[in-house]
Write a protein that binds this DNA or RNA. Structure first.
Length: 490
RNA sequence: GGUCGGAUGGCCGAGUGGCUAGGCACAGGUCUGCAAAACCUUUUACAGCGGUUCGAAUCCGCUUCCGACCUCCA
């Protein structure tokens, strides 16, 4: 494919991407609810949409990327009291709800910064857009698609579906939803106020115990879960924008609700393309509290978790995520992560070598076709694993040429360098991680390596091996190459 | 129960009718005082049964298993 195509969940087809405005893209991605530390499930979306954004930039688009922070709690479904999720956590830790939100907003942003995810253009807080949400609810009421009961406002799903396809995005039929609704133990607060069990809250009346509540035309309360994204995407990207993204778990009800709300308000679907990344699994199982396999991102980075055999770096995690296509499930295991770690190192090594290749008059390799197929892969719904496979081919060629077992001309070298710098670094966002060492440590290590080199030259292998073995015990790995030795911390 | 999506070699993971995915591991080799590292080469596959076709991992049907969602979710 020579132009970018993306899979649109709304049409269930891969479509050619065409922006509403020439060379400008509006991208809205659902961000985290900041009530707990970020776990592995939180990282995939940011990385996937970061690559999409970087690719747009590469293609010459200007991108406005909006990613919200949900700091307004929602009803807790599995609790018996329906209290605000943020409030609950706050009570547990004896701190303010906004303090909880702040702590986890910071840790979320720190996490994705380490993974080289570009910060969004705008990162709006739900709590900072209560007025916009209230205004939107009012216009939905005015349009006749919502009703107020005892200080709460609900979206009228039945009324809406008379002239709209409510369940289209998620492939659901309203009759099925109605048959399934309310047949479980799940008892939501205010369920009996609704005209229909499928109606969802736009605004919820707050009880006095609710710390987070705001004044509204319907009394003190707080916004429903879906309205924030509708209100904020509309404010910053307009009534219609290009892409709305998120996890597949948001398909229903969140994005379904968003489409209904916006349509009720503006008359049409807010986004032209709906993109959804798949979920992750751990050792083939879903990540769940009950399975005790929930891994926090900081635990992955430190290796401090019973399921982890070692620490994995942020860049390893990023690369690992991109080795799978975003619409498939992604399985975490030590074996798979280690494979990603080693493979990534191989690419980094080759990217370094490519900077110093010697040109020949002729070339044994067709680098241009590699580049072409990389772009074809990215254009095909962001097929990063295929693109990465081609990067490994470029790495292999680089190594062969570097070993003097193949020839390449100056143009080929330039292309190789371009592939590593543009594709690997700029589009995939994979950058070498700075060594955790400092200057003093570097100096000491260089000294030891020099001493060992001298011992080797004097054929004092007892001493050279002693240096290597003792360093090894301390966790340093010594690598002897043609041009001297190097070291790394294992 | 309803809806949707899966099942690919030891592990991860692309591929949608004929042509090598790729990474890691394993194995062989190069290099090396030795070892490691690095590099090169390379074997094993398409859940099961049936059908369509000259030809199926790919299309169709059935079966088995797995997952997600069904008003907290990334």
């Amino acid at each position: 494919m020579t132009t970018l195509h993306l899979y649109n969940t709304y049409s269930r087809k891969t479509e050619e991407f065409r922006s509403i405005h020439d060379k400008i893209v509006g991208l809205y991605v659902c961000g985290p609810t900041v009530y707990g530390p970020p776990h592995l499930g939180h990282v995939r979306g940011p990385v996937v949409f970061d690559v999409l954004r970087r690719y747009f930039l590469h293609l010459g688009y200007k991108v406005r990327h909006v990613r919200n922070i949900t700091d307004v709690g929602h009803i807790v479904g599995d609790a018996d009291d329906g209290e605000d999720k943020l409030q609950k956590q706050a009570a547990l830790e004896q701190i303010q709800p906004m303090e909880v939100a702040q702590i986890y907003t910071l840790s979320y942003n720190e996490m994705i910064r380490q993974m080289n995810v570009l910060p969004p253009s705008i990162e709006p807080l739900a709590s900072g857009h209560i007025i916009e949400q209230i205004e939107m609810i009012e216009s939905i009421i005015k349009a006749g698609f919502a009703y107020e009961v005892h200080g709460s406002v609900y979206f009228d799903v039945i009324g809406y579906s008379k002239n709209h396809e409510y369940g289209k995005l998620s492939g659901r039929v309203l009759d099925d939803l109605m048959a399934g609704a309310g047949n479980e133990s799940r008892e939501l607060e205010g369920q009996d106020e609704k005209r229909n069990a499928n109606d969802f809250a736009l605004w919820k009346k707050a009880t006095p115990e609710h710390i987070m509540q705001w004044s509204s035309p319907w009394g003190k309360g707080y916004p429903g879960w879906h309205i924030e994204c509708s209100a904020m995407s509309r404010k910053y990207l307009g009534d219609t924008f290009d892409i709305h993204g998120g996890g597949m778990d948001l398909l229903f009800p969140h994005h379904t609700g968003e489409i209904a709300q916006s349509t009720a308000c503006t008359g049409h679907n807010p986004a032209n393309y709906w993109m959804h990344h798949n979920m992750i699994t751990i050792n083939g199982q879903k990540m769940a509290k009950s399975l005790n396999n929930g891994i926090q991102v900081t635990e992955l980075f430190s290796g401090n978790h019973p399921l982890l055999e070692q620490a994995y770096s942020p860049m390893t995690l990023r690369f690992f995520i991109l080795m799978a296509h975003y619409r498939g499930t992604l399985d975490f295991s030590n074996e798979a992560l280690k494979a990603a770690e080693k493979g990534l190192q191989r690419l980094f090594n080759a990217a370094e070598l490519a900077k110093n290749l010697v040109a020949s008059d002729s070339s044994d390799f067709d680098i241009k076709s590699i580049e072409t197929s990389i772009y074809a892969s990215l254009n095909d719904d962001l097929n990063t694993p295929q693109a990465i496979a081609q990067l490994f081919e470029a790495a292999r060629i680089t190594n062969v040429v570097n070993d003097g077992k193949g020839k390449i001309n100056a143009e080929g070298i330039q292309l190789l360098q371009h592939i590593f710098s543009e594709i690997l670094t700029n589009i995939l966002g994979i950058i070498p991680e700075s060594n955790t060492s400092n200057n003093a440590l570097d100096g000491v290590m260089q000294m030891l390596l020099n001493m060992r080199k001298q011992a080797k030259e004097e054929k004092n292998y007892a001493l050279s091996d002693q240096i290597r073995n003792q360093l090894s015990e301390l966790g340093f790995e010594i690598k002897d190459g043609k041009d001297g030795s190097s070291w790394s911390l294992v």
